[in-house]
Amino acid sequence: MAVSSSAISSPRLGEVIETSTTGFLAESDQLHRLPELGALVCVGGLDDSRAYYGVVSHGATGGLDTSRKAVRRGGDHLSDAAIYDRHPELELVLRTVFNVAVIGYRDGPRFRHALPALPVPLHYSVHGCDRATIASFSASPRYLASLLSFHGEIMPEQLVAAHLRWVDNQLDDHHTWLTDATRRLARLMKRDYDRLATILESIAPD
């Protein structure tokens, strides 16, 4: 059941700890380290030919045991990173988690921008995507429509804007993809100018 190394070569970011058809929750391997909001991530499937893709829609750090709430640890003489040195147990009693909205999957050589038939497998690794994968997956950004109807912890406009910024950053192609994506978005949202404006303003003040 191992995923072939050609399918997923990027480093592991975390592990799926809750899963459903529309998305999953992952726990980061390292405290405070998680993929950026809007990032494209990938989880291997139960067989080599499958992989699932999603966009990071939320992140949080808190007690491993949800009944234990974080309290102030510092003051004038102790703050920020030094708090973790002074309380070495924090690394073990806190955890960072992130939500991912599933937006597509790979079926053999092709990407499908649709909800997969089965949820992402529980306890499987979450990986980042390399530049080639990002470029292929986002080549025809029809999936932006599904992101626009996202229901979750943040507003869909924020999620779309974060994703657009992230892909543009990763591709580093003088905004070629971004220009095309925003044009498509404008067509999709022609009856909803206010929402479109919100997104455009967050992407590029310039």
């Binding site: 973790y84 002074r86 070495p88 924090l90 690394e91 073990l92």
Partner: peptide, 12 residues
């Protein structure tokens, strides 16, 4: 096990 100082560490 908790260790403090130059090389902080914890094991629970």
């Amino acid at each position: 096990y908790l260790r403090y100082g130059a090389d902080p560490f914890a094991d629970l």
